[in-house]
Amino acid sequence: MSDLFINSNGIIPQSLLERLQAAGRECHVLELPEHTDGAAIVRQHFEQLSNEGRYYHNIYLDLTGGFNELAEFTADAVTAMQRLELRLTEVLKALKYGSQHLARADGGRIWVLCYDHSVNYSVASPSNPITNNAVIAAVQSIAKEVARFDVSVNVFLIHPPKESVTNDSWKQAKQSLKVYGMKYKPQPVQHIAELLQMYAGLKNLTTTGGIIPVGSGIAAGNI
């Protein structure tokens, strides 16, 4: 049994990947370049593995990189809309193929990694409320369908790590970060990866269809 990363360029999946490999876990990476039929790449990959009788246990789908809806819709809504449609269609298909793959095995886990879009109110970080809310609804729905195959599907809604935002930004946002929730404490990416690794390593996972906020204070997933 091994793990698959669908896209791994972000600092969070990279850090998690390194930790898992250092712990002796066999990990594979499938990069889906933009402007390609990413879903077809995913489907072919799973078909090939299934033919060989090999199956993954954890599948990580990284959505933390490459898109910032708030900025892109503000700049050029038409282009952003086209990108969004392609991206969400690809994500849904990847979730479907991944669920089918794990269902053919003895079950497994799918983890979707998203940045918490609400942090963008305070510091410059990717804000993808459309993708996040869509993926959350998808995961909640799929989880109900595939639980009978012992497949769990969850979303991590992650505050951006300390390394992805300049220190000055955190200081400038000091006041706004106190609003309603506790003051946001930037977390090193290593600490975030440690938490994700802990979830993935649980022998008996009792969470599916979950939206797991990773960060201190208010996360959009809790509102």
Partner: peptide, 14 residues
Amino acid sequence: GKEGQVPYATTKGG
């Protein structure tokens, strides 16, 4: 979320 309505739920979440 809703079982049997995955893409529909996705679009409504979106």
